[in-house]
Design a protein around this nucleic acid. Sequence first.
DNA 1: CGATAATTTAGGGACAATCA
DNA 2: TGATTGTCCCTAAATTATCG
Length: 239
Amino acid sequence: MANLTYRQIEAFRAVMISGTTSGAADILCVSQPAVSRLLSDFEDTVGVPMFERQKKRLVPTPEAHMFYAEVERAFISLEKLKRAADELRELHRGSLRIASMPAASLEFVPFAVKRFSEDNPGVSLSFQIRSTQQVADLVASQQFDVGIVSAVPHMDMSIQVEPLADSRLVCVFPQDHPLGEKDLIRPEDLEGEFFISMGTDQSLRHKIDSVFDSAGVNRKLLVPESVTSRPAHRTADLQ
DNA sequence: CGATAATTTAGGGACAATCA
DNA sequence: TGATTGTCCCTAAATTATCG
């Protein structure tokens, strides 16, 4: 018995997809007789009739449908191999995967990515926005190469930390708010005030909370979604 | 014995003719 | 219109022969 060849399986798959040898020929970019021959060889090799020859039509037998399911699984695996090869090729040329917290993802990181791409054409870049905790996890698990966060949530020996910049925390008020007169805000100034806080998944949230806790200050916490948008006109340093 | 050249073989393709 | 078959050609792989 002759060997089953990749080309024969390709022809079988193309016929199953298109329904005709002519259609299969278009898919495979060969002549229609070539497909007919391949299909015939394929059936001889398999030893089972895969199509009923009706007038102007090839009707797949139940065996053909069963075999086709296996073929599709195999082709999906082949696609995975192809993608793996593509990824290897990309890796050879160079690639950089960046994850960033939302706050840095609007201006800072896109600007840096743009400059990096201009200086390093040929290096493929992927950029995703995640919470600080997720960024740290993605870098720790080596799914990403670089992460931009406000603070590392917990010390992880698999992460190398480089300070990128210092930034100050500010309070934002409506224009007519009494505290807007001050240049410096202390925790006790916010006693009883409505306070729009970060999400609990943000490490900075916990740091801010601990500052107020140790000062014994109670704020009226609001989640961002519950606040109607009011333009903020005044900022002051939070210390 | 390993490298290279020459020959053989198998697979895949097109074209033309034919059938249903 | 679509499928099959016969024939021929091309190419790549496998095998064999030759040479240093």
